[in-house]
């Protein structure tokens, strides 16, 4: 007997939709974190698919470092408008102004780490009991051990040694007052899966992912965009190059790459041929061997 089978991408899609619906069913006040990057874009697309023709039954939230590329912010506002989703924005600048977070100084200054303060404050302020994030297990070794449903204590912290076993497709979102969950619906996707899915489903993404001309400079082997948020050393040469971004985050820690890929097909070919991991261009991960683990324990995305 020839059996009907579904391909792996549709199986991943079904799994993610299932997880997102479990969140909507098990939590009273969930939120979906949105960064403007491709992972959160497909996560939101999956959420729309999970509930259509109804609207997504939770808001999106963007923790804005103030150091985003303008294209990211434009895209965020366009998507919120196009989908009719509620978009909550919380600013790292406000956390700095109120003294909750302290700005880093110097050439490597970044607001990446400060986001955690703003995020945890927002979760407390809005009384969210679950925050969905677009983290994938293939991204980084600390994420390889993350559950779909990740329990956080009342300080928003992650205890890698004490995670709940997750069996079959039974997700345990029970918690005590004050605790919350982080849920990662696209845990099992790889970078390639994400790109193929964007192509398959014809999903809009910011232009930053496609090849364009931009003023850039090189530092520690990483190509950065020239932005008002970064101090450039005298020895660093700013030049115009044809580049694109492989990941999109804060402009101060997102590396660009020389690329002429200006269609999804070209990007897929480029991703397939590349010999460097996606986060290889992320200086936030390069701070130490356990940079991600440390940030996750504190409550990072």
């Amino acid at each position: 007997m020839k059996h009907f089978t579904i391909n792996h991408l549709r199986e991943l899609e079904s799994e993610s939709i299932y997880v997102i619906r479990e969140v909507a069913a098990q939590f009273e006040n969930p939120v979906m974190l949105f960064s403007g990057g491709k992972d959160s874009i497909i996560m939101f697309h999956l959420a729309r698919k999970a509930f259509f023709p109804a609207k997504v039954p939770f808001p999106l939230m963007h923790i804005d470092t103030g150091h985003n590329f303008p294209e990211t912010i434009e895209f965020r506002d366009w998507l919120a408008n196009e989908s009719g989703a509620q978009m909550v924005v919380r600013n790292v600048q406000d956390s700095i102004n109120s003294g909750r977070a302290v700005e880093e100084t110097g050439f490597t200054a970044s607001r990446n780490k400060l986001q955690t303060v703003t995020l945890l404050d927002a979760i407390e302020e809005m009384k969210y009991d679950c925050a969905m994030g677009g983290g994938r297990r293939d991204e980084e070794k600390a994420r390889a051990k993350e559950r779909f449903f990740s329990h956080r204590d009342e300080f928003g912290q992650w205890d890698p040694k004490n995670q709940r076993p997750e069996l079959w497709n039974l997700f345990n979102g029970r918690k005590n007052i004050g605790e919350h969950f982080r849920v990662f619906p696209i845990s099992n996707w790889t970078e390639m899966d994400v790109w193929q899915y964007i192509l398959l489903e014809n999903i809009d993404i910011p232009n930053l992912y496609f090849s364009h001309e931009r003023e850039v400079f090189e530092r520690d082997g990483i190509l950065y965009a020239k932005t008002p948020f970064m101090q450039i050393k005298e020895t660093e040469k700013v030049e115009k190059r044809i580049i694109r971004f492989r990941t999109i985050g804060d402009a101060t820690c997102t590396g660009a790459l020389d690329s002429i890929a200006n269609s999804l097909e070209d990007i897929i070919r480029e991703v397939a041929a590349t010999r460097v991991t996606e986060r290889g261009g992320r200086s936030d991960d390069k701070r130490s061997e356990a940079a991600m683990e440390d940030r996750k324990i504190e409550g990072y995305f």
């Binding site: 089978t5 391909n7 390639m192 192509l199």
Partner: peptide, 14 residues
Amino acid sequence: MDKDITTSAYLDME
């Protein structure tokens, strides 16, 4: 990762 990966082949994977 396979260098000749095409979308149609990719969608055929189990």
